[in-house]
Design a protein around this nucleic acid. Structure first.
Lengths: 345, 345
DNA sequence: CGAATTCCCGTAAACGCTTACTGAGATTCA
DNA sequence: TGAATCTCAGTAAGCGTTTACGGGAATTCG
């Protein structure tokens, strides 16, 4: 089943069939009609590869993510796909699993499929692989981790505004002992988030004395929180580098028989769907997947028209207050001193 | 950059390059070596489309799911992909969003890309679309919703065993007022799950008096549970058609100031990752994504060798007991009577 | 040692589509 | 009315691979 059979049935040339498929305006309505009927009748679907091969255009965009199991990413994938299909483009999703080796595989897949552009939403990326794309004039867009150059754009997440709002919110509630559970520090994105947090505390003259490292997954948050709880001097509020981590922390706190937000307040980051439904519902900093997806797609899709110069795009983050944050426990200081044996006799 | 340039650099024909790329044994180690060096040097990646076009094989499998936002599916996708790449195959994931129209789009994408087989893990499927695949001799495998025929297999989930174990577990804890929150009843998969539940209760002589319909998402579970709580006669245990629903139910219960499992026990279904980290951790029926993925891939991959006859594969479900289930409240009956005004004076 | 095999490798014809080029008829215009 | 222009459709040359086929050199065998 191919274009020739359609042509035969419609009594036209293959060129005409191709033209009607591609919506060329150089076909009379009548012949177009005839061809379309033939297509229907035969149940013909044009072969994507042959199309791409013939035209040199793939209509395919790559989307590289690091962990499809983290709900942040499926939501991102979904938005990105929606936008892409609206523009008649397709999306090839690749999952690196935080594994540099798999990253290499992903890149080669993209290259082999001659994608028209790649959105790299994963944190770490071998520069060598980046040049592979650049050598082939493939537009790129990074999330946070890129530098703007020819054909490559970067999406800058404004972590500061969200984290600032979170710390402000927490501080207003009387907290002064604020901890942060980061992502894996080998990841640049995790570093950026942590720096934003530390910087924010510094600006307010609060010490950043409780820093723990998680892995951006639930278990890591759980363990990190457990470590925080074992410290002599406990934080009364905890910010997490992402919601999965916060959810893990929530569990660890409950396991110790403490409650949120009465004993400890928790703030997440990302605002994944499930965050609204944890117990208690998570106060978190929202990072709109939809906005990121939209910006990323636009950056890729329009870059060739715009002379190929990359750009920097900003995406805001905003605090969403729910129920996991509350007033600092009044006896926090007392508690602390009791534990450390510094109570005045 | 194409195979010809490589050939030129390596001083061989394009055929030889192609042969070394495909690991043919009809190439001397020396020439192979030479070609490989040329490939390295040029940073050459073979063009997938041309390859598929030339060979007629796509090495591509389709995976159709209904909602990438439901954590069940990303986990399935991940497993399926892992297995596929282990076999040197690729995966094209399509997300229907429960929308029949998008389903059509998904199917046409698969057809256009000439996939070697499709795993249809979504519940509802227009039979017309199925014949599109069958006409083209494309192997299919369904999850629960298919019928075995030439080139098409079906994975039968043994819901009964898991649900039976769940009801047994609940009954042992003294519960007799057991509710079920189903998925959207337009979906066959939701119907199947509900039937398994109702059948199980019947077999035990328990009435299925509390049935509510959710939507397999958190908000639906939340609302359904809210409705259950408003009933005069409240259930003391609730089974949910999937974990997302159960998580929603959990939230609704907490909102009413009740607690799990003291007042009401909850059992989920699927055992998605997050279930281990809810408050309290969810007792649920595990359905192994990994096993489903493995079976599905095998069904597609080997079907042509096996004479093309489809098969029926069974996947078990097993109860995972965590903390959301406990003894039925002793005063359940009393409570009930108080509320309905039937207390003996 | 000559014939029969075997082993590598090159030649060239697909694969199914797109598109530059071409040309026949219809239309416009002076 | 004849020339210029325009419209629509066909011809055929790619696009980058794979692979059937063929041939020359090396190997085996009687």
């Amino acid at each position: 089943m191919n274009i020739r059979e359609v042509a035969r049935l419609a009594k036209v040339s293959t060129a005409t069939v191709s033209r009607t498929i591609n919506g060329s305006d150089k076909v009379t309505p009548e012949t177009r009609e005839r061809v379309q009927r033939a297509i229907e009748e035969l149940g013909f679907y044009p072969n994507t590869w042959a199309r791409a091969l013939g035209s040199g255009r793939s209509s395919l965009y790559g989307l590289i993510i690091s962990d499809i199991t983290n709900p942040f990413f499926p939501e991102l994938v979904k938005s990105f796909e929606d936008i892409a299909v609206q523009h008649g483009q397709e999306v090839l999703v690749a999952n690196t699993n935080y594994d540099p080796e798999r990253m290499e595989v992903c890149v080669s897949r993209m290259l082999q499929r001659k994608v028209d552009g790649v959105a790299i939403m994963t944190s770490e990326m071998d520069p060598r692989l980046i040049t592979e794309f650049q050598n082939r004039d493939i537009p790129l867009v990074f999330l946070d981790t890129g530098t703007v150059q020819k054909l490559t754009s970067n999406i800058l997440v404004d972590y500061a505004s969200g984290i600032d709002a979170a710390v402000e919110h927490i501080a207003r509630l009387g907290h002064t002992q604020i901890a942060f559970i980061s992502g894996p520090m080998v990841l640049r994105s995790a570093q950026v988030r942590r720096e934003a947090f530390v910087g924010c505390l510094k600006r307010r003259g609060i010490g950043a004395d409780w820093l723990e490292e998680g892995n951006h997954q639930v278990d890591g948050g759980h363990q990190a929180m457990a470590r925080l709880l074992l410290r002599e001097k406990r934080p009364t509020a905890v910010l997490a580098s992402n919601d999965m981590t916060a959810i893990g922390a929530l569990g660890a706190i409950h396991e110790r028989g403490l409650s949120v937000p009465e004993d400890i307040s928790i703030v997440g980051f990302d605002d994944i769907q499930i965050s609204a439904f944890t117990q208690p519902a998570l106060t978190t900093v929202r990072l709109s997947r939809d906005e990121i997806a939209r910006v990323a797609f636009r950056a890729l899709y329009s870059i060739r028209q715009d002379g190929g110069k990359g750009g920097e795009y900003a995406v805001r983050s905003t605090l969403v207050v729910r129920r996991s944050t509350g007033r600092a426990p009044r006896d926090a200081a007392a508690n602390l001193q009791k534990k450390t044996g510094l109570v005045e006799a």
